[in-house]
Simulated assay, not measured.
Amino acid sequence: MTLALLLGAIALYGGLVLAPADYQQGDAYRIIFIHVPSAWMSMFIYAVMGVASFIALVWRIKLAEVVAMESAPIGAAFTFITLVTGSLWGKPMWGTWWTWDARLTSELVLLFLFLGVIGLYRAFEDRRQGARAAAFLAIIGIINVPIVHFSVNWWNTLHQGSTVNVFGKSTMSWDMLWPLLTMTLATKFYYAASLFRRARTDLLSLEGGKDWVRQIAQDEDAR
């Protein structure tokens, strides 16, 4: 978590202070240093949740079930940040806080899917039964991830196309690109650290009556 905060601070300084203003959007574009990494993480976390849900349902692996369910709140938070920062960016660029653009709408659907998984998981008294029901929804909803990603290519949208290409040349200046990539790395570390803490707490709660859990509790009390 410390590394995530450090990288995030470096990225913000690079994006908000060191990076030059955009020749068209001026300083308004700087919100991308939060918006874009959050959008990437919203899709990445949903993909992780979907894969973990599939593993949990097919092979009945409890750890995969925990990873899927504990990823949902983190993913929902990143998706919410994406939508809020997108609205703040859209107002000066498009003249409106919201439009039913394909990218915005599919990202909103992604938020509803995250919330649906969280709601289903908590709707059952039996947590394992709730996790299985939520896992089905997560797997069904994974079809929305490529829709979010490719929406700007498949439909005529207001949302600008991609300027960062993993396997090709990016059209963004390096002065702007390195803070963006650094923030992306920071969000990855944040997700990993947050997921580890949440999964550990949830797993200890599920296995509360077992000897190894009591041993961990005794070891922590002894420190």
Rank of each mutant, 00 (worst) to 15 (best):
K210S: 10
L185H: 04
V213K: 07
W212I: 08
L203I: 09
V166H: 05
K210M: 10
L206P: 00
D202R: 10
S170C: 06
A193E: 05
P179L: 06
S173K: 07
M183P: 02
T184A: 04
M172F: 08
D211N: 03
L185F: 15
V213F: 11
A186M: 07
W212F: 12
R198K: 12
D175T: 08
D211A: 15
W174D: 01
F196N: 02
L185G: 07
D175C: 01
S170T: 15
W212S: 01
D175L: 10
S194Y: 09
S194H: 13
T201Y: 06
T182R: 02
F196H: 06
V166K: 04
A217D: 13
L206I: 14
V213A: 13
L185R: 01
W174Q: 07
S205P: 00
D202E: 12
T182N: 01
S170Q: 05
F167K: 07
S194D: 05
S205D: 11
T171A: 03
K210V: 14
R200F: 09
W174K: 04
E207D: 14
G209P: 00
S194K: 14
D202A: 09
T171G: 13
L203Y: 15
Y190M: 07
T171S: 04
A193S: 12
D211P: 00
L206H: 11
S170I: 15
I216W: 03
L181T: 10
A217C: 07
T187L: 04
L195S: 04
R197I: 14
R197C: 01
W212T: 08
T201E: 09
Y190P: 00
Y191T: 07
S173G: 02
A192Q: 04
D202V: 12
S194G: 01
K188A: 05
A186S: 09
G168N: 11
G209R: 11
E207F: 09
S194A: 13
M176R: 02
Q215P: 00
R214T: 14
T171P: 01
L195M: 10
L180F: 13
T201R: 12
Y191W: 15
T201H: 11
D175N: 03
M172A: 10
D211R: 10
P179E: 04
Y190I: 03
K188R: 07
Y191N: 01
K169V: 09
W178G: 02
L185P: 01
K210T: 15
L181I: 14
M183V: 08
D202F: 15
L177F: 08
A199G: 05
M176P: 05
F189L: 09
W212Y: 14
L204W: 06
D211F: 12
T184M: 05
K210I: 13
T171I: 03
R198A: 15
A186Y: 09
M176K: 04
T201S: 11
R200L: 11
D211G: 00
A186I: 08
K188P: 00
R214H: 13
A217Q: 12
T201I: 09
G209E: 10
Q215T: 12
F196P: 00
Q215L: 08
Y190C: 02
L180N: 04
P179F: 09
